[in-house]
Computed example of a mutant assay.
Amino acid sequence: MTQTQKTQKALRLGTRRSKLAMAQSGHVADAVRELTGRDVELVEITTYGDTSREHLAQIGGTGVFVTALRDALLRGDVDFAVHSLKDLPTTQPEDLALAAIPRREDPRDVLIGRDGMTLAELTEAAEGGVVRIGTGSPRRMAQLNACARHRGLRLETVPIRGNIDTRIGFVRNGELDAVVLAAAGLNRSGRTDEVTEFLDPDHVLPAPGQGALAIECTAANAELAATLAELDDPLTRVAVTAERSLLAALEAGCSAPVGALADLLADDQVVKEMRLRGVVGATDGSSLVQLSTTGPVPTTQDQAEALGRELADEMLAKGAAGLMGERAH
């Protein structure tokens, strides 16, 4: 470390206060320390989404976990911020730079069932009774209920909110048979051993951008943006850009029942194609529109966005708009 680096002020990283947010921001802080040689201090910020007890669909969903962080950036209270990418609105403000999207974690959803049981085992143990699964996501509700209808299972999806401990607590105290969470959050929190089943994306597609982080700073701070850009993973960026473009073209917010996943397909360990899958569903599982497209890996943001828009147009032509209810902008 040079003498200049020693005397530079610590970089201030804005983060939500939750254990998960602090854990993932801590990983980014370590990477920035190693990259720059500068100290990084975490600045805890409370967002509206953290304080409201209403379900995301009721409070609008879009931006509720990021607005306070972005306001802190623009006021100069912090130098950069870390978000879960799936929480970001699809329109990027001109005065903020999405400087880096690091390599994505596991994008899948997972089930945490009572007594370590999978969904199939819970259904068998219920002996014809109803299996109660907690989730705060209309997207998960739509796909779980559709899967249950297809397989003749008796499921009840129960709306819940709260942090990881709160949600798992519903299972531990017997209120619910299982809860569904994002694999990435459990991995980053060191709690993967609590997972009883990884849900196949063929049955439950994740939220657009799920498993990825977004590192944001002001557009005016070009030097910091260029430094943070070294943490960017180009393949992750084009994949999540396609997913979020699909979400934007559907004119749906992050609380809408929309799933998307861009898989990078490799041949002899060389990534050659990308498959984009999208789903929109009625929350009761009565109807789904699920389509996919496969093509060359986009080499620019424009190409990735075009791929998402094209698939969204096909989904809208199949009736996707009618399954989203009131659209969240």
Rank of each mutant, 00 (worst) to 15 (best):
G322F: 02
A81L: 00
G295Q: 05
D302A: 15
E216Q: 10
N221A: 10
E216I: 13
C147I: 08
E34A: 14
A97F: 04
A183H: 12
E105C: 04
S52K: 05
P257Y: 00
I133R: 12
R33Y: 07
M141W: 03
E194G: 00
V240H: 11
E197G: 00
T157A: 13
R191T: 07
L119N: 05
Q301M: 08
M1V: 15
T192D: 14
D39W: 08
T293N: 09
L186C: 03
R188H: 09
Q3E: 13
T241E: 13
A220V: 09
F198S: 11
L307E: 10
I112L: 14
L176W: 00
L73V: 05
D200C: 07
A256H: 11
K6T: 15
R114I: 13
L224E: 10
D106M: 10
D115N: 12
A125P: 08
A312I: 11
R53C: 07
M274P: 00
R327S: 10
M315K: 08
E230Q: 12
A10I: 10
T46N: 13
L323Y: 09
L288F: 05
G61H: 02
A214P: 04
E273N: 12
A252D: 08
R33M: 13
A214F: 02
A142K: 04
D233C: 13
P138W: 04
V180C: 06
P201G: 13
S52F: 01
D313H: 15
T15A: 12
S25C: 11
G285R: 09
L316H: 06
A260L: 03
V240A: 07
L98E: 04
T294I: 14
E175T: 14
Q301E: 12
P298W: 09
A31D: 11
D115V: 02
A125K: 11
V40K: 03
D232P: 00
A146S: 12
A219P: 01
E326C: 00
G26S: 06
G136C: 01
L155Q: 06
E314Q: 14
T118A: 05
N163Q: 10
E41R: 07
L186V: 06
M22C: 12
H27K: 15
I45S: 06
V110R: 03
A229C: 04
T2Q: 03
R277H: 08
S287P: 00
R277K: 12
E243D: 04
A29M: 04
L250M: 07
E105L: 07
Q301L: 09
R191N: 03
S286L: 02
C217K: 03
L20T: 03
T62A: 09
R103V: 11
